[in-house]
Amino acid sequence: MLTAKVPRVVLVTRPTDYQNLLAHHGTREAARFFLESRGQRIEEAESRHARFDLALQAVLSAVPLKWRRSRIDRSDLASFVFEPEDLVLALGQDGLVANVAKYLEGQLVLGINPDPEAFEGVLVPHPPAAAADLLQDAVAGRAKVEGRTMAEARLDDGQRLVALNEVFIGHRTHQSARYRIRLGEREERQSSSGLIVATGTGATGWARSIVQQRKEAPALPKPTDHRLAFFVREAWPSRATGTSLSQGLVDQQHPLELTSEMNEDGVLFGDGIEQDHLEFVWGMRAVVTLAPDCLKLIR
């Protein structure tokens, strides 16, 4: 149960396609001309924006007037200060929940799907009409909460990042990355297109596409499993580099350790957000394992 006398709902959104078109082209007419000259119609983006706006109004109306509320854009997440007992409401596609998850420390997250025709709703499973009851259930401690495992990468200088889907480690431009990799007693030097360490939530995305291309691969974890799976992409065999440690499972007792041998442009980033990366250059050491906190998703 949330213990704050006056609960605070933090509503997280991102611009719609229509809003992005207006921001880029300046006016609707300019955006319409741009799309129609390429055989597309602005009405489709307008229709999706209208559905989002209806969902937004329904969600805002669901928050009791006496409650505190804040609304932030996805781009402002890095600078926003969450309170320990905030109730986070993500209105948008599934990826929006992954975007916000890395900035939380145990706060409840309620995912609302504004457009079921466009978004699968794995992480945003609820319709706008259910928001009022779900908010009340969350405050009263009645909400069903699913704890989804997250991955953490920590560098030897103290920097860290957290991801809900996967952590990528490699060269910034996805060129050949050189590093030493260690899991338990096994260790080797590798040159590859980088590697990913995926959670059970991320098992339906990038990790799944890699597994489908391999004859043998470890079973991907489920979203609540306390383990991760790693996959090296296109490991190159040579006199100095090997390919025997190209996949496996990671848990608290068996973290994945990497030491960079890249002179420049070595990076780590989470959930596909390359702009929010950590440098991983020659000599730096990274340890990837389960994050101490999980995503607490209201089901």
Rank of each mutant, 00 (worst) to 15 (best):
A138M: 15
V145K: 05
K102P: 08
G111H: 05
P218T: 11
E185V: 09
M150E: 10
E216W: 13
V211D: 03
A203F: 06
Y179W: 12
R178T: 13
I181Y: 00
P237M: 07
L110Q: 06
E105L: 09
H226S: 13
Q213Y: 00
E117I: 00
E146K: 06
G248I: 08
Q190E: 14
R189V: 07
R180Y: 05
E166R: 04
V250Y: 09
Q159P: 02
L135W: 00
H226I: 00
E146C: 05
L164K: 01
V197L: 12
A235G: 15
P221S: 13
A177T: 01
Q212L: 10
R178K: 13
G200D: 11
P223S: 08
A203R: 01
D133R: 07
R180V: 14
E216P: 00
L195Y: 12
I196Y: 09
S176H: 10
L228W: 08
G121L: 06
W206K: 03
G184K: 02
A138D: 02
F230K: 03
V109G: 08
R239D: 15
G242P: 04
P221H: 12
D115Q: 05
E185M: 09
V124F: 01
E166D: 15
V109I: 11
L249Q: 14
K222E: 14
L104C: 13
G242A: 13
D133K: 05
G147S: 15
F231K: 00
A219Y: 05
P114C: 07
R148N: 12
R148L: 15
V232Y: 00
R154K: 15
G106E: 13
A131R: 00
A217W: 07
R227P: 01
P218W: 11
R239N: 14
L104G: 10
I169A: 15
A240H: 12
A229R: 03
L249C: 07
D225S: 12
L183N: 09
V197D: 06
G121T: 08
R214D: 00
D225Q: 07
H174V: 04
L228A: 06
V197F: 02
A163E: 06
E117D: 14
A132T: 01
N165R: 03
V139T: 05
V124W: 01
L110S: 07
E185N: 14
D157K: 01
E146Y: 04
R214V: 02
A229K: 02
V145R: 04
L183C: 13
I169T: 10
S244C: 08
P237R: 11
D225C: 11
V109A: 09
G141W: 04
D156T: 04
G111F: 03
W236F: 15
Q190L: 08
G248F: 03
A143H: 01
M150S: 02
D133T: 11
I210C: 11
V211S: 10
